[in-house]
């Protein structure tokens, strides 16, 4: 298992919505640090911190559905998302995690 912090980057343009960018690092099979960014709209702005916090610590094997559920659960019901969705964030995270997995495979003889 990878015990060092491996940085990874994933992007997903939500069709009809906005770009969701995920930068994360993986350690010990889990998301160790994560920053979601993009040209979307969120009210209140502090909801972004809740999204990042919800993703931190989840296993790298978490499915898109699992990730989306975690994001939705962390958000106050009054949060307004415009051009961004929990599913879109989850897909961008999966893309970032997939890039880590493929790097690991390349490193394995």
């Amino acid at each position: 298992m990878n015990t060092t912090n491996t940085p990874a980057h994933g992007e997903y343009k939500i069709p009809g919505g906005k770009l969701v960018v995920v930068d994360l690092s993986v350690a010990d099979g889990r998301i160790a640090a994560v920053q979601v960014s993009g040209d979307f709209f969120l009210e209140p702005a502090s909801a972004l911190d809740d999204i990042d916090a919800a993703l931190k610590g989840l296993p790298v094997s978490a499915s898109q559905e699992h990730l989306a559920t975690a994001v939705t659960a962390a958000l106050d019901p009054d949060t307004q998302m415009f051009g961004i969705s929990a599913e879109g964030v989850a897909l961008a995270v999966r893309r970032a995690l997939a890039s880590v997995a493929s790097e690991d495979q390349e490193a394995t003889p």
Binding site: V21, D23, S37, G38, F40, A45
Partner: peptide
């Protein structure tokens, strides 16, 4: 930049 954009990106 927008409020939620990453400077580096």
């Amino acid at each position: 930049m927008g409020r939620f954009q990453s400077l580096r990106n």
